[in-house]
Simulated scan of single mutants.
Amino acid sequence: MESSSPLVTLCSLAQKALDQATNHLGQVRKSQTQAQEQLSMLLNYQQEYREKLNSTMSDGIAANTWQNYQQFITTLEVAIDQHNKQLMQWNQRLDSALVLWQEKQQRLNAYQTLQQRASDQQKHLENKLDQKLNDEFAQRGAQRKKS
């Protein structure tokens, strides 16, 4: 099995690389989910704040209160825009991490396939040798009986 030793090493290294890619993918996915949740919270807060403004406006509103509402809504819209951009970046990172993970998985699968083929080939050779030895042993036994 010496011929498969490098394949065992390659499989081991590929497994480690896959494990690292899996961890990285998990971290990126977690961060992307958190960014999505933060954006959702901001959007919900913006909706609630607008509803509150509409309710307040129906009862009448002072000019300075109106300006405060407008400034806050503008600030909230800037924060939402920033979170949208951040979420887009996390989505791109997630896509990249997923591609990397898939590549590592394919590489490991390829090495495992090669390792399995080498193992099967070695077993086949061993079986042939065993069969040859058994045939020789049977032939010698038959010759002994004839003598």
Rank of each mutant, 00 (worst) to 15 (best):
residue 1 M to F: 14
residue 2 E to A: 03
residue 4 S to K: 03
residue 5 S to V: 08
residue 8 V to D: 08
residue 10 L to Q: 12
residue 15 Q to Y: 14
residue 17 A to Y: 03
residue 17 A to F: 04
residue 18 L to A: 00
residue 23 N to S: 05
residue 24 H to I: 06
residue 25 L to I: 06
residue 25 L to E: 12
residue 28 V to A: 01
residue 30 K to G: 03
residue 33 T to D: 11
residue 34 Q to R: 15
residue 36 Q to E: 11
residue 44 N to G: 09
residue 48 E to P: 07
residue 49 Y to R: 11
residue 49 Y to Q: 03
residue 50 R to P: 02
residue 51 E to D: 11
residue 58 S to D: 07
residue 59 D to T: 13
residue 61 I to P: 00
residue 63 A to P: 03
residue 64 N to E: 08
residue 65 T to F: 04
residue 67 Q to K: 09
residue 69 Y to N: 02
residue 71 Q to P: 04
residue 71 Q to I: 05
residue 75 T to N: 09
residue 77 E to C: 10
residue 78 V to F: 07
residue 80 I to Y: 00
residue 80 I to A: 00
residue 81 D to Y: 06
residue 83 H to Y: 12
residue 84 N to I: 05
residue 85 K to Y: 04
residue 85 K to Q: 13
residue 87 L to E: 06
residue 91 N to H: 07
residue 92 Q to K: 10
residue 96 S to W: 06
residue 97 A to V: 02
residue 98 L to Y: 15
residue 99 V to F: 10
residue 99 V to K: 13
residue 103 E to D: 13
residue 104 K to F: 01
residue 106 Q to F: 07
residue 106 Q to L: 06
residue 106 Q to S: 05
residue 106 Q to C: 02
residue 111 Y to K: 02
residue 111 Y to N: 00
residue 112 Q to S: 00
residue 112 Q to K: 06
residue 113 T to G: 04
residue 115 Q to L: 13
residue 118 A to V: 01
residue 122 Q to N: 08
residue 123 K to T: 06
residue 124 H to P: 04
residue 126 E to P: 00
residue 126 E to V: 02
residue 129 L to I: 10
residue 129 L to A: 07
residue 130 D to R: 15
residue 132 K to C: 12
residue 132 K to S: 15
residue 132 K to D: 09
residue 136 E to M: 15
residue 136 E to G: 12
residue 138 A to G: 01
residue 140 R to K: 03
residue 141 G to T: 14
residue 142 A to H: 09
residue 144 R to V: 05
residue 145 K to D: 10
residue 146 K to C: 04
residue 147 S to P: 09
